[in-house]
C-alpha cells in the first residue's frame, strides 16, 4: 500500500488521472454536531437569530463540495453530477446528523467532496447557532461508503454509536464529584453551563460548602450567594443546609418565570 499523492521521491504531487477509466462513482460521508437540547429545539422551530439554519447549511455544503479542489491541495476539480446534503435532528443524542452524497462519472473518487460538504455544513450549523450555544462540538466526520473506481466498493464497518455529550461529561468512575448546572439568565451571566466539583474540595457535604468551593475556584460564582438565586438538588428545591451526596446533580437558577 502506498500513498498516491506522494511521488517516488516522497514529494507531494497530483496524480495523473488521464489514463484511468471513467466509471460511475459515488461517495457518502457523514458527521454530526452536538448541541444543547434547547439549541436543537430552537433550530427545529426556526427560532435562531440568523434564520433558516438547515437550508443555509445545505447550500454551504453543496457549494463547498464543488470547491473542494480549491481547499485540498492535490484534489482534482471535478464536474459533480450530484451533490446532496441531508440533516437529521436527533433529540435523544441532542445533535444534528449530517450526510452528504456526491456522484459523478469520472476518473477520480468523490470522497473528498462528500467529506468537505459534511464538514462545511457542520461549520455553517455552528456559525448559525453560536449566538446561543458556543459549546457545540463537531465530531464523527467520516466516509460511510464509496463505489466505483479501481478500489471498487468500500463500506465502513458497523461500529458503536459514539457517546453522546451527556455521557462523555459523566465523571470518570472513581472520582467522586458533584455535577453543577447553571440555568437560564444565570448560565448566560456566568458564561458557564456546567461544572464538576470534586467532593474532596468541599468542607462539608452541603449546598453552602458547594457555593464556597465554587467561589474559591472563581470569584464570578459569588453571584450564587445572592438571595434571589435558587438551588435544586437532584431536581428538588434545596437551600444552603441541604445535604449533598456524591454523584448529585445540583442546579442554580434565577427565579422562575413560566406560565
Amino acid at each position: 500500500m502506498s500513498l498516491t499523492h506522494l511521488n517516488a521521491r516522497g514529494e507531494a504531487h497530483m496524480v495523473d488521472v488521464g489514463d484511468k477509466a471513467e466509471t460511475q462513482r459515488e461517495a457518502v460521508a457523514s458527521g454530526r454536531i452536538v448541541m444543547r437540547p434547547d439549541t436543537l429545539a430552537l433550530l427545529a422551530e426556526g427560532g435562531l437569530p440568523k434564520g433558516d439554519v438547515l437550508a443555509t447549511a445545505r447550500i454551504a455544503g453543496i457549494q463547498a463540495a464543488k470547491r473542494t479542489h480549491e481547499l485540498i491541495p492535490l484534489c482534482h476539480a471535478l464536474l459533480l453530477s450530484k451533490v446532496s446534503v441531508d440533516f437529521r435532528l436527533d433529540e435523544a443524542a441532542s445533535c444534528v446528523h449530517v450526510e452528504s452524497r456526491c456522484r459523478l462519472a469520472g476518473r477520480t473518487g468523490v470522497e473528498m467532496e462528500a467529506l468537505t460538504a459534511v464538514s462545511v455544513a457542520c461549520l455553517t450549523l455552528y456559525d448559525m447557532c453560536k449566538a446561543v450555544d458556543k459549546d457545540m462540538t463537531i465530531d464523527g466526520v467520516c466516509l460511510e461508503h464509496k463505489t466505483g473506481g479501481k478500489s471498487g466498493e468500500w463500506h465502513r464497518a458497523a461500529e458503536e454509536v459514539p457517546a453522546t455529550r451527556e455521557a462523555s461529561e459523566t465523571p470518570p468512575v472513581g472520582v467522586a464529584a458533584i455535577r453543577v448546572k447553571f440555568l437560564a439568565e444565570l448560565r448566560e451571566r456566568l458564561d458557564t453551563e456546567e461544572v464538576e466539583v470534586p467532593v474532596a474540595s468541599l468542607k462539608s457535604l452541603d449546598v453552602a460548602s458547594l457555593k464556597a468551593a465554587l467561589e474559591a475556584r472563581d470569584s464570578r460564582f459569588a453571584a450564587l450567594s445572592a438571595a434571589r438565586i435558587l438551588c435544586a438538588v437532584d431536581h428538588a428545591m434545596a437551600h444552603d443546609d441541604t445535604t449533598l451526596r456524591e454523584g448529585d446533580e445540583v442546579a442554580f437558577f434565577p427565579p422562575v418565570t413560566g406560565g
Binding site: L183, A184, E185, V256, T257
Partner: peptide, 12 residues
C-alpha cells in the same frame, strides 16, 4: 397556576 408560576423551573 399560582404554584406553577412560582415553583416550576421555566424561564422566559
Amino acid at each position: 397556576m399560582d404554584h406553577l408560576k412560582t415553583r416550576a423551573p421555566f424561564w422566559k
